[in-house]
């Protein structure tokens, strides 16, 4: 999603002002000459000044570029799905992995993202499950990454090698 430099600069400027202003609330518990707020104040000020300069630059060529260029995912529902499914499944992972375990969660994620890109659903499910199983074996069983086992928890002792 491309927006006008005026907006880009404005966002950076406001963010910088926020950082700088918020840094004034950090009080050092001991009498330090430079407290915890010093560095954020510096970078916040820097960020807001750079933002201001981008706004200034944007003002000079405000007529040549449009305010907002809609991204390609606004063109169709399918495109939007393919785009938003990516952050969507990450949030799904966070919400459900402890309950469902890695194997099921990863199978669901892989299957749905593959299917969303237009592949046949059965094939997506098969590929999704196989990849999830290989990942589960490789990372949880062999490399001991603490992935949740979900329903398999009670027998996970035998599944960690």
């Amino acid at each position: 999603m491309k927006v006008h430099d005026l907006i880009v600069g404005m966002v950076f400027m406001l963010l910088g002002i926020f950082v700088a202003a918020y840094s004034r609330t950090f009080a050092a518990p001991r009498n330090l000459s430079y407290g915890p707020g010093f560095f954020p104040l510096l970078v916040g000020t820097g960020l807001s000044l750079v933002g201001l300069a981008i706004v200034w630059q944007g003002l000079r060529n405000h007529k040549t570029s449009p305010i907002v260029v809609p991204p390609d995912w606004t063109k169709s529902a399918r495109f939007a799905l393919r785009f938003w499914i990516i952050p969507g499944v990450i949030v799904f992972y966070i919400a459900f992995v402890d309950l469902l375990g890695f194997l099921i969660t990863a199978t669901l994620i892989l299957t749905s993202v593959i299917a969303a890109s237009g592949a046949p659903k059965t094939k997506a499910l098969i590929v999704g499950f196989l990849v999830a199983a290989v990942m589960n074996i490789g990372f949880a069983s062999i490399l001991h990454v603490p992935l949740p086992w979900g329903p398999l928890t009670s027998i996970s002792g035998w599944l960690i090698w």
Partner: peptide, 26 residues
């Protein structure tokens, strides 16, 4: 300018968490 904005953004994000000297949460 946009490169510097990105740099300052990174520097600002780096200040999230405990302050390295006094341990104050920021």
């Amino acid at each position: 300018l946009k490169g510097l904005a990105s740099l300052f953004l990174g520097l600002s994000l780096a200040t999230i968490g405990m302050d390295p000297v006094s341990g104050i949460p920021r």
